[in-house]
Nucleic acid binder design. Structure first.
Length: 687
DNA sequence: CCTTGCGCCATAGAATCGGC
DNA sequence: GCCGATTCTATGGCGCAAGG
């Protein structure tokens, strides 16, 4: 309905506005031409055009515009054509007036005249240009002639062939004869067919055979498209799971490169209007195959309305710790130090598969922007469930206990050789029944990740200055965790208080994880970005290797077996740690600042914290006990534990985050560029 | 993820020109 | 009247960013 009306009003607009508009356009153009002719100099309209014009004039040594011939016959011809044009114009104007009169009872000329846009045949809004085209059942060009359909073009071509066969090889006027023939034979369809149109159709057929070569040419050769589609089909079939465009993109790029079309990518890289095998393109291919994209579950977490208050309270608590225990301020200057932040990121393994291939990664960063080694939690019971790192005795067994939910958990650390050589970024491997962290893995995390870190840092600091902090084991350190049952488990906290009394726990207020936890959005996102890139590199490389090795496109596979996935994940995670610590450091610091936690080293904040102590900053704390100082350490820890226990478990803390492969909107549009070593490709292709 | 709006590129069509 | 060439306009299709 709406659309119909739009078309209708548009049509009346055409009738009403056309004569004057056309006339105005012509006048404007004449003026422009005259201006150009008068002085091929600094006309505002188009410096470029003027420049080319003057060049032309110099080349032809002719003073007039466009090198018009001075031949008397040419002049006469020009004048004749001018007269004819004027005549045609007059006729056309009359025709428009007639149709205008016919449509006179149609309403709202005012609305119509204001129209500056129209809807093209695909429903897109387009700005009006000088002249307007008409739309009804048949397609018209702006001047009102018919655009011929596929079959009609074929008829024209056939007629042309017939006439050409009838004539002698040297004969001319074939186009005109064809047009005439068709006009007389099929007047309803071809009443307006002209010789130039015939010529266009014939030439186009000779060139391409395509119906309309307009628009961006197909970026890739048809062979490549077929190959990519075959590979997609193969991969999708093998997986039998949900597939998303970001997963297939590296495959497509791999195929393109393997076929030697790297230049297509290189040239278009990052530039507008050029092909760069974007997600859009991949999605287009997927749609072509009839596949559907599945909308992933978004971030549905709700932040409590008073989150700012809650987070501030947390900052104050941290400030109090800082004040009370004189936790070094070197932190503020960027030296690595004490505070820990951690978060479990349920990494939906890289392939976004079913639950079986998930694993949990526990990551942590210090407030100075250093990322600690990860802890991975996978599903399984024995060492064999861990990825094969290629060396015997890769793992050392550390813990084997039943967790608070009754199932057994196993923890390992990589053997010294492995840890020193390639798996530098993962310090703890755990196996649980469901790949979730529990109190046992938390214990392993403390002993295998946190404590070594603190120890190393404290020793480093004391090596430069004994004043900088107290000895390891005395200096109080703070670990910030979110409220999750693994961290509030009473047995675990008791164990912590018993064995590592110098560690303070600080809980992010429930449901405030997105606001109060630096890990949550930013750092995890960066980590996932790195993993995505590594996945992309891997697939890209894999596909290329397979193709070079003679694999047919339809046989391309991306291994998704559990061992491969685990191995990749472990390798990538491990590599991500040093990378985060070098290239992404400033980003991590920014994430910390976003939470306001760094304010804890601010004297004002500390003063406020001390003041608020009376008002229940630590609600479950008996202040008298607390003021006992070091002697009351144990009790303090217990009280803090109790404090945290009041907080109900934060269901959302276990939220795994978006699938790794989904890009965060607006952050990583051209990420795949980094999957490819462009320099090596460049040298390879030139060699 | 999807839609919208816009810019870019390249070509088809229209208008025009010189020439036969 | 027609052809081939040239110039200007119209339009197809995609990349990209913002907003939902």
């Amino acid at each position: 309905m709406e659309r119909g009306r739009g078309l209708f009003s548009f049509f009346t607009a055409l009738s009403a506005a056309n004569p004057s508009e056309v006339k105005a356009a012509k006048e404007a153009r004449a003026a422009r031409d005259k201006a150009d002719a008068d002085a091929c100099g600094e006309r505002s309209k188009a410096a470029k055009k003027a420049a080319s014009q003057s060049c032309w004039n110099e080349a032809t040594a002719s003073g007039s515009k466009k090198g018009l011939s001075n031949d008397p016959e040419a002049i006469r011809s020009r004048e004749r054509r001018k007269r004819e044009a004027a005549k045609r114009e007059k006729q056309r104007a009359k025709a428009f007036n007639d149709s205008n009169a016919a449509a006179a009872n149609h309403p709202e000329p005012a609305d119509v005249e204001k129209e500056t846009h129209y809807t093209d045949n695909k429903g897109r809004k387009r700005k009006r240009k000088t002249l307007r085209s008409r739309t009804d059942g048949v397609r018209y060009t702006k001047a009102g002639s018919v655009i011929y359909s596929d079959t009609e073009c074929r008829m024209v071509a056939e007629t042309f062939d017939r006439i050409k066969a009838r004539n002698l090889p040297g004969d001319t006027e074939l186009y005109a004869k064809t047009a005439k023939d068709l006009r007389s034979r099929l007047p309803t369809t071809f009443s307006k067919l002209g010789r130039q149109q015939v010529r266009q159709i014939i030439l186009r057929r000779e060139r391409t055979g395509a119906l309309d070569g307009r628009g961006r040419f197909t970026p890739l050769p048809a062979v490549l498209i077929t190959a990519i589609l075959l590979a997609f089909t193969s991969v999708v079939k093998a997986r039998a799971t949900v597939i998303s465009a970001p997963m297939l993109q590296p495959i497509a790029i791999g195929i393109i490169i393997a076929h030697g079309y790297t230049s297509l990518l290189r040239e278009g890289r990052g530039k507008r209007g050029e092909f760069c095998c974007g997600l859009h393109f991949v999605r287009g291919l997927m749609k072509q195959k009839g596949w559907r994209n599945v909308k992933p579950q978004g971030d549905t977490r709700k932040v409590p309305p008073n989150w700012a208050e809650l987070v501030h309270a947390m900052v104050l608590r941290l400030a109090y710790f800082v004040w009370q225990h004189d936790i070094p301020k070197e932190l503020r200057k960027g030296k690595t130090w004490i505070t820990e932040e951690m978060h479990k990121s349920g990494d939906k393994s890289l392939q976004n598969h079913g639950d079986k291939r998930q694993c949990t990664v526990v990551t942590a960063t210090s407030a100075a922007g250093e990322m600690l080694p990860h802890q991975t939690v996978m599903e399984g019971k024995t060492v064999r469930a861990l990825p094969n790192l290629g060396a015997p005795y890769s793992y050392s067994h550390t813990l084997n206990k039943s967790n608070s939910k009754g199932t057994r958990s196993f923890c390992f650390v990589p053997s010294p050789v492995v840890a020193a050589t390639w798996i530098t970024g993962i310090a703890s491997f755990c196996l649980t029944a469901n790949h979730w962290s529990d109190n046992i893995t938390s214990r392993a995390w403390i002993t295998d990740v946190v404590v070594p870190y603190f120890k190393r840092k404290i020793e480093e600091m004391r090596a430069t200055s004994l004043e900088s902090c107290k000895e390891f084991g005395t200096q109080v350190c703070v670990v910030i965790v979110d409220v999750w049952w693994g961290w509030i488990d009473a047995g675990w906290k008791a164990w912590l208080a018993e064995t590592h009394p110098w560690i303070r726990l600080l809980y992010v207020p429930p449901r405030c994880t997105p606001k109060g936890q630096p890990m949550d959005a930013g750092i995890i996102a960066m980590l996932k970005g790195i993993l995505r890139r590594q996945y992309g590199t891997w697939v890209c490389d894999l596909v290329q290797r397979q193709l070079r090795g003679g694999t047919k496109p339809e046989e391309i596979t991306v291994p998704s077996d559990v061992p491969t996935c685990k191995r990749n994940l472990v390798n990538w995670l491990s590599e991500a740690v040093p990378e985060m610590n070098t290239t992404e450091k400033s980003g991590m610091l920014k994430c910390w600042e976003a939470t306001g936690l760094h304010k804890a080293w601010n004297k004002d904040t500390q003063r406020e914290a001390v003041k608020k102590l009376q008002d229940g900053l630590f609600p479950n704390l008996d202040l008298d006990q607390y003021n006992l100082g070091d002697e009351g350490m144990m009790k303090v820890v217990a009280a803090l534990v109790a404090d945290a226990q009041d907080n109900s478990e934060d269901q959302d803390a276990g939220w795994p985050g978006l699938p790794v492969l989904q890009t965060v909107p607006g952050t990583v549009a051209q990420e795949w560029e980094r999957w490819i070593d462009w320099d090596s490709l460049g040298s390879a292709s030139s060699a």
